[in-house]
């Protein structure tokens, strides 16, 4: 069994108004050193795969088919055996 930890974020070229709002809120809280905030999503997916290569393939497929809107988001993930 493998555990995929997937992080989905807006592409660099896409405005992230929620991240911008959080940044402003942090600056209002006097965190003067906050320069930029990006908001994204995080998924943990348990995958019953025979080996890491297959788990890798499945993770890529579920990202492309559902978890990620490739028009505006990008993703990265790590895999560990559990």
């Amino acid at each position: 069994m493998y555990l995929a930890k997937v992080i989905v974020t807006k592409k660099a070229s896409i405005l992230d108004p929620q991240g911008e709002t959080i940044k402003n809120a942090l600056q209002n809280l006097d965190f003067k050193k906050i320069d930029d905030v990006k908001q994204g999503s995080y998924f943990e997916v348990k995958i019953d795969a025979d080996n890491q290569e297959k788990a890798d393939q499945i993770t890529n497929s579920i990202c492309k088919e559902l978890l990620v809107n490739q028009n505006m988001e990008s993703y990265k993930f790590s895999l560990e055996e559990v």
Partner: peptide, 17 residues
Amino acid sequence: LTESNLLPGSLMVNEQP
């Protein structure tokens, strides 16, 4: 419709969220 790829593009959070 955009998520179904029947129309191009996406609808994102409003510029002022």
